[in-house]
Every structure is written in C-alpha cells, then in structure tokens.
Nucleic acid binder design. Structure first.
Lengths: 218, 218
DNA sequence: TAGATTGTTAATCGATTAACAATC
DNA sequence: TAGATTGTTAATCGATTAACAATC
C-alpha cells in the first residue's frame, strides 16, 4: 500500500457500514470468498469503487482470488471501531430514546447503554430494558463519576443547547444527535446526526419531484 | 431562469430541508430579508452554493436586496411538497413506530398517520396517540380501501421482504424505510431510508478515525 | 445614481469510473 | 503456466467555488 496522507472522504466512510452489513450476510450464508465484481452486483456499487474504498485502508484482497469474506469482515469491523466496547447514555427518555435502548442490535455490537436521563419525575427510578431512568438533574454528576463514550441526544429543541454545553465539558467521545438542531463537534468530540424530519421531507420531495420540476421549469 | 433539463442532484435535495429549517427559524425571529452571504454564515454553506441550489428551481431573489424570507420559505415548502397533505401508515408498532406516530412535528407538516399495523395480537384495537393499532393480517385490505401515500416500515429484517412485496402492489407513493434492508424504489414508488445502525457505526468510525488511520497507515 | 447582491458562466476541486500492469 | 482479479494510475464526470455582468 502506498503512503497516503489525505483524509478519508465522508462518502467513503458512509459506505463502510454498508460493506459491513453485506459481508455479515455473506458470512451467515457461509460464503468464503468474493470478488469485487460479485460484491458489486449485490451492493449496487461499482467494483472499481469497492476496490478504491478498501484500498484507503489496506490491501485486503488477493490477486486472482478476490477477498476472503471473514478476513474482510473483521478488517472493516476494526476500521469501524466495533472491536471496542462503547458506553452510551441517552438523554431524553421519549420514544426515540426508548427505541434505541430497546434495540438489541446495538448491544450485540458492543454499545452498552448505562443510563437514560429524563425530566419527567414520574418515571425516574424505573427501568427501560434494564437501564435505569435517572433525573436530568443528575446528568453532570453521572458524567463526573462514570466513563461515557457516547451521548445520544433525543430531547426537544429547546433543551438541546444547555445539554450540549454541559456534556462537551466532559471527556465524552461522540454525540449521536437526534434533535432538530445542527450541532458542531469539537477537537475531541465527534457528532453524527439523524435528522428524521429532514428525511421525511426528502421523501416528500422525491414523491413530488416530477410535478415540482414541471411547475418550476414549465 | 434558463431552461434546465438535467435532474437535480441528491446533494442539492438533501440540503433543501436544511434551508427550510433555517428559514423557519428566521421567520420565527421576524427577519424579513436575508442575503445569501448572511445565510451562508448561519448555515455553514457557501453563498455560492446557496445561490446555485436555489437557482435549480427559480429566481427567488432580488439583486441588491437578497431574499425575502417569507417568500423563500413558502417556495421551498412547495418544492418539498409540504403544501400537500400525506396519509402515512406505519407497519411495525415497536418503539420506532411509536416514536414517529407520537412526534407532533410530522402532523404539523401535513403527515397524517391513519393506521399502524402490528403482529402482536395483545395490543390490536388499542390506540397510539389516537391512531388505531390494526392486525398485520388486515394490511392488504386496508391498502385496498384507503388512500395511503407513505408506508413507514419499522419491522424486523425477517419480515421486510414480504411486506415490501405486498405494499408495492398498491398505489402508494413512497416507503420510509427504517429497516436494515436496502430497498429499491419502483417507477412510481420512492424509497427514503433511515439506517440507524449505519449511523451509529459511522459515529464509531469518526470517534476512532485517528487511531485507525495510524494503525492502517503507520 | 451608487451600492449591493443576485443569477449565471467559468474555473477548480474532488469523487467515480475505466483501464491495465502486477501478481497470486 | 494460464486465468483471474487485485491494486493503482489515469481519465472522466459531477459538484463546489470563484468571479463578474446584470440589475434592483
């Protein structure tokens, strides 16, 4: 592999989980090897792009053979940091918060939910899928005393800024942002956002695209 | 505006909801006009890109003045198809399904949830935020007898394909896909996916990126 | 009118695809 | 060895940015 100094582009990064998903399926089907061409057909990505993407990280294939599925799966797992465990807390105990706590797939991949913080005093002390519901008033104390990698933010817009300002003072690594507010990362804290409203609007655009372009362009 | 034949790129489309969001905030703040330069600073998008994006659809600005916020907001609303109401059904009554049904923001923008379909017979007949929980066995009958624009899919992977094959036989316009399976649209049915697992993996990558690149590139 | 800012063309940058020598 | 397929360079394509004439 040649020496590469450039950053990996976000387009490549966004494809990595998709590779991981498809390779996992191939493993389940007991497929031992796969060529970039075969994978290309399954994933609707050109074989050229697959080879380019992978070669950002290393030479995982063998000429004349292709890629060993198990090997490639393990490599991408490492690239995604999924060989490490992550402690996650959820701030906001609404349905989205509950959904991510209840979904077993995240735990299976090493994301451990250690607490959920809520304003509503009625439910404090109860548990969601074994995870204790704590008062939002105890958030800072918790961050002081516990190792937290990721804060999943599922609170209403008006609460976002205060919580954001609080959590970035602690040694967390990432914010998984489900709010409507665009949050900036810091030197040490990365942000990944899930904008559900934007996604639904994008679907609405796609549905009406033909009509809209007709109207605006005659 | 010149005559443009080309399709709008997905990169532009994905920015439209963001424009809509920021313009809504400006409206709330009673801002009457804004230049592409001012908007650029707020949104972290170059003014050039803002002007290019908007001019895909029309000439909404005025030289020497900028853009009227209300006007631009209304135009983007129309471009996104948000001047129309949409009937949405949810297939899968787990926490994600509940979350999107309970979120009032979608209703406010004209997305009306008309039914939710569930396998679990215990809860059938009950209501989530006023929306009746129906048996998945009645899904086809419902599609036959009711106008449905969007199907939100929040079922486990193993159920996806059957439901997909069923719903695409009816006159629906879009699928909002929360499952782990990549679904293809058809001539008349658009697909927009929210891959939560992919998103969390992307965050994990970002968190560990520096170490990973060090390891793989020495 | 002078100043400001758009709409739009041209230049640049980056990402994707094609091609093929290297090599298993 | 011959065939297959990678890794990697070069070509192409598309998206972003810069620049500026048009015009309010």
């Amino acid at each position: 592999m040649k020496d590469k100094k450039t950053e990996i582009s976000i387009a490549v990064i966004k494809r990595l989980p998709k590779y991981y998903r498809y390779l996992g399926d191939l493993l389940d089907d007991k497929i031992v090897r796969i060529s970039s061409n075969e994978l290309s057909e399954k994933m609707n990505i050109t074989s050229s792009q697959i080879r380019q993407d992978l070669n950002n990280f290393g030479c995982f294939g063998v000429q004349g053979y292709g890629y060993n599925v198990q090997r490639l799966y393990e490599e991408i797992k490492k690239i995604l940091g999924l060989d490490k465990a992550h402690n996650v807390i959820v701030v906001g105990g609404g349905n989205i918060g509950k959904a991510i706590i209840n979904y077993q797939g995240f735990r299976k991949r090493g994301f451990n939910f250690t607490a959920v913080f809520e304003k509503d005093s009625d439910v404090i002390g109860q548990r969601i899928n074994g995870v204790e519901i704590c008062s939002i008033d105890n958030l800072e104390e918790f961050l002081k005393n516990n190792h937290v990698d990721i804060v999943a933010l599922t609170v209403p817009s008006k609460s976002v800024y205060n919580i954001y300002k609080t959590v970035i003072n602690y040694d967390i690594k990432g914010i998984w942002n489900f709010t409507q507010i665009d949050l900036e990362g810091t030197e040490n804290i990365k942000v990944e956002s899930v904008h559900l409203t934007d996604s639904l609007m994008t679907l609405s655009y796609k549905i009406h695209e033909e009509d809209i372009l007709k109207r605006y362009r005659q």
